[in-house]
Design a protein around this nucleic acid. Structure first.
Lengths: 338, 338
DNA sequence: ATTTAATCTGACACCGGTGTCATAATTAGC
DNA sequence: GCTAATTATGACACCGGTGTCAGATTAAAT
């Protein structure tokens, strides 16, 4: 297969390569006749511009990096899926970068990533979205970035928020409306800002009913299945067992279900359980988990789209958008029966 | 931050840029003194070669594509993880390409992918590893590729195999040794060659015990949780209910467990269940699934490493390597009690 | 001390695009 | 119909590296 470059197209169409470049980029100041000729040559030769050469000329890589450190595989693939779609639409490539938050020094890691791969921009997903050190570094290095699901807002970057607090409030309200008064809570990883946000919603809902927060009903998890197990044991084996458990994500909720099974506690008759995220496991276990579905793909898609557009815009405009979660009721919740 | 190019390094070190390039690529014919000087300049200026310029000069992208279409998120992330590690080690980037096998014409899709992204090579994961049309196309287009977990061998490519048949044989043998004689089987997706391989192992083990294959005990699934549910209903609601079910992957096995729970069938006392893959769900449900763990990361890592090395080698050497699965016993299997 | 071979080093073109600017071809204005 | 303003086009340098090849330097051989 003969290599087709801009030169061959130019020769074929009988014009200069600069003119070909003009047609390629939809630049003005090309006569209709010439444009036609060149486009014809594109087709006849099946020409594809070389993104690498283009990148060199522009001093750009047309690559967006996606940073994550999340135990949930399904969350990661959803993030990737949204990011990929946005990239493909704009002819960018996506470079995935899983990354241990507590591993080697984060900044060094990112520094290497950026300078070796020449990323044009970076999407931060939780828990990086709220990592001040990282955000400051990117700002200092002048690397465009977008934040997915941050809690803190700096008004200086593209941020696509989810309203975790509201959603957590809603799902807690659901439990309350079912007659539950003793509702335990399992927190997520302290590095994730969603952890506090979700907890806040829970606290707010309880507060509105005039129910005091019981410290023995609040366990410290870290979003992992394992931490959910430990927390569930602590909560369910305590003297005053709650009638419902709100786990900050579905993995931990699944772990609560497992512990309940092992203790022969019937769910939802003797114990209601709710999770968060609507991970696949929420519908893969029996009973299915009542949980909050978040539009992860949409959020990431939007973040990457805004990021790429801001890279190519002359005027940089930073914006915040908020996406809402949706309550999904399955079989793990039921009316409280004394 | 000043831009550091090969020219600035050359000036700083007082040599030509070609000499800098020589040092960069560890080429011979550079005096120790000069090499020292240049390396010193690298450090002082914190120089990072521009992969894009390098790519243009070499007519290479230093990007490996990873093709997949797999419902299992955990499988995908494991594949990615192995591939990424191999790429990072060799200074390549990884481009992920999820892809609907039954979606738009596959070859067109790949054609676009290759010509727009200028991939240097492609890793095929199931079900693409055994897609003859695709493999033929890549061969025709002269695109280097490696196949992860193929079943058919063409001896003309890098192939990293797993011994699915053996593993399926082993796990069936386990059920037989527990006294089970009526063992149902849920097949995977017909496009995945692993489907037949696993079935073969099951058939072989039964055959050795002189147990005839019952067609009513073989269901056609497609690796999805949902198909597992349907298959499980068909099998468990039949008149002659088996005492054990072998599902071709863990998602379908989890679905069997769900259906069994709904039917109040106690697992493992009244029904043993085994899966395949050791997906996270296998240990996230209760009882945990007895299954086969495959070294997915290792296999992909190896495939990508071999692929990159073969791209850079003058002599192309194709090879086949076989990785073994490992039987993992959890709580979903027990002695058959009449 | 020369010749010969081996080892270094740099000038220069090139990879495949894009930006700048000068010039050619139109069109508009009167 | 002639000049002025506008639009269309191409020559050329450049992005940051690498390959080729010739020339300079050093080491080995006689």
């Amino acid at each position: 297969m003969e290599k087709v470059t801009i030169n061959s197209v130019a020769k074929h169409a009988g014009v200069s390569k600069k003119t070909v470049s003009r047609v390629l980029n939809n630049e003005p100041n090309v006569s209709d006749a010439t444009r036609e000729k060149v486009q014809q040559a594109f087709k006849e030769l099946n020409y594809r511009p070389n993104p690498i050469a283009r990148g060199l000329a522009h001093n750009r890589s047309f690559i967006i990096g996606c940073l994550y450190d999340n135990p949930s595989k399904s969350y990661i693939t959803r993030v990737q899926s949204g990011a990929l779609e946005a990239c493909q639409e704009r002819n960018y490539n996506l470079l995935i970068h899983p990354c241990e938050l507590r591993g080697e020094p984060l900044i060094d890691n990112i520094e290497t990533l950026i300078s070796t791969s020449r990323l044009d921009g970076l999407v931060l997903t939780p828990p990086f979205s709220d990592n001040k050190e990282l955000v400051d570094y990117l700002k200092f290095r002048n690397v465009p970035y977008a934040r997915v699901a941050p809690v803190t807002l700096d008004d200086e970057s593209i941020s696509i928020k989810s309203n975790d607090t509201q959603a957590a409030y809603d799902i807690t309200k659901l439990l309350l409306s079912l007659g539950h008064k003793e509702i335990a809570f399992i927190k997520g990883h302290p590095d994730h800002s969603a952890t506090e946000a979700r907890f806040d919603g829970y606290v707010k809902a309880l507060g509105e009913e005039g129910i005091a927060l019981k410290t023995e009903f609040v366990a410290e998890g870290n979003f992992s299945y394992h931490s959910g197990e430990d927390s569930a044991r602590k909560i369910l084996e305590s003297a005053a067992r709650p009638s419902a458990v709100f786990a900050s994500n579905d993995y931990m909720a699944a772990a609560v279900l497992k512990v309940a099974s092992q203790m022969s506690l019937k769910v939802p008759d003797e114990l209601s359980i709710v999770g968060f995220d609507n991970a696949p496991i929420a519908r893969h276990i029996w009973p299915g988990l009542t949980t909050i579905a978040q539009p992860v793909e949409d959020m990431t898609f939007r973040a990457v789209t805004l990021l790429i557009d801001s890279i190519n815009a002359t005027e940089i405009e930073n914006m915040v958008e908020i996406f809402a979660g949706k309550l999904i009721e399955r079989q793990s919740t039921a009316q409280f029966s004394h």
